[in-house]
Design a protein around this nucleic acid. Sequence first.
RNA 1: CGGGACGUGGCGCAGCUUGGUAGCGCGCAUCGUUCGGGACGAUGAGGUCGCCGGUUCGAAUCCGGCCGUCCCGACCA
Length: 543
Amino acid sequence: MRAGYVRQLMSGVYSMLPLALRVRAKVAQIIREEMDAIGCQEFLLPAIHPADLWRKSGRWDLIGAEMFRLKDRRDVDLCLGMTHEEVFAVLAGELESYRQLPQAWYQVQTKFRDEPRPKSGVLRTREFTMKDAYTFDIDDAGLDAAFEKQRGAYVKIFKRLGFDAVQVEASSGLMGGSDSVEFMVRAEYGEDTVVYSSQCGYAANLEKATSRLDAVTDEAPPGAPQKFPTPGVRTIDALVESGAPADRQIKTMVYLIDDAPVLVLMRGDHQVQAQKLMDHAGTEDIRAAGPEEIRGLLGADPGSLGAVGLADIAVWADMALSGRTNLFTGANEDDFHLSGVDVERDIVVERWLDLREVVAGQPCPECGEPLELFDAIESGHIFKLGRHYAEALGATVMDADGKEQVITMGSYGIGVERNMAAIVEASHDEHGIVWPTAVAPYHVVVTLVGNDDGAATTAEAVYEQLKAMDVEVLFDDRDERPGVKFADAELIGVPYRVTIGPKGLAAGTVELSTRATGESTDLDVDGAAAAVSERVRADLAGA
RNA sequence: CGGGACGUGGCGCAGCUUGGUAGCGCGCAUCGUUCGGGACGAUGAGGUCGCCGGUUCGAAUCCGGCCGUCCCGACCA
């Protein structure tokens, strides 16, 4: 078989070839070591779950098509686990006393998520391996401490994997809970966007990020909004041409949130961040209303909508509109807009929310310097879950006063294959992968060149010596030309190559090449294996 | 979910517009020459043209349906 790491079986599902399996084992081992180091105990839970558990937590209905669902022969509903809060909470139900807390448990296990759009190879798949850890504490202070321990372990894990991961504030999405931090790796093919201030270090997921709003002083509006004709005007830009600056317009959008209409108001030059809307709404069941629905609700077409004078539809407004006066908005009548709108005087706003999507260059909410945006891979995500799952699944303990207390939980995930991909993204060149030695499938490849019997004997001897020294070594004695062997070694990313051929042996040397730097040195044949072994060991020790 | 593209030996593709019984590169097999940066020659094996149906004397090619894969978008009135 040709050199390679993975093969696609179907959309979002990959077979792991031997090289990939070795890397995966090393990544998993690094994760295990850091989990074990903070006292987290390893479990292994089933991939197939009864629906009943997920009904108890409420997620059977909350989660849509992303969950793989099936039935057994008795027609009982089952699902494939996307994550394991429920099952771990069941186990935590065996805990009886606060004296048994805190607990920290983890597993390295297969998850199934029917992603709407798997992409970018192994970065986003429907079946993948995840290290998921869960902590169980009696109180918030305990959860905070557990969360910080996990955070520390994650920092060490990503450092050992060979890349910098920036911690960002994140949206908790479907997991619920109060607080969550994502670990992001800057990468061209990243699917997330990080908002970042290099000045003060502020970092947040675009789904959560915000920016500083400059105070605006509007001219006082007239006593009431004035209706004026705007024939054919249907967009913010068109209204700008009619003399209304975008930052003085109110953009009115109609969403159906759990099937109930909500008007969402944004400043004309701002965009809605859909995830923020979901977070505030507490549901993922959000969609933009269609033109017919909008006409039925407001009596006008998109482009002429406004919230002035509406009393029977909920209005949510972005904070950027707070305190603004003398603005422009649609009149709910095609071809007419209103001017002189004072938001708080003329519109009944049910909720004031942060709904804006940050744009590069806007001022940092903390230091005021321009924000930058970059694409990143989400390599880890840690959550403070709170008591929802424990409550739903009956995980309680007796506290010191003999009273039953619901346990508070945290959950902490790292995608193993995704992190392999992140390493490759962070460490490759035009010839292929450049694995950090700590996760490389092999440390060394012994490359035999030429067809000289003496060279072959020496190469095999060096290979055996390296194996005896516990160096993970490949022996490339294929009947291929040297160029093919070199190119393959570089492609698969083995950190060190020992080239053995008649040319060097005539001078009593073999060649040691370093993948990362491209440097080569000649080693005396006799001490070659020992020298290579020492080099690998120094590398692994972090030298 | 919406939009777009693609599906032809193991891999990458051409052929389809204008129907006539399938071709190229790489890879693979055998032999020979080569052998420290992706060799060369000779010979050869290998294809239900995604599936089902239709049109036709005849379909990889035209028509319909289905399946699969990839890409873009996920919303902004």
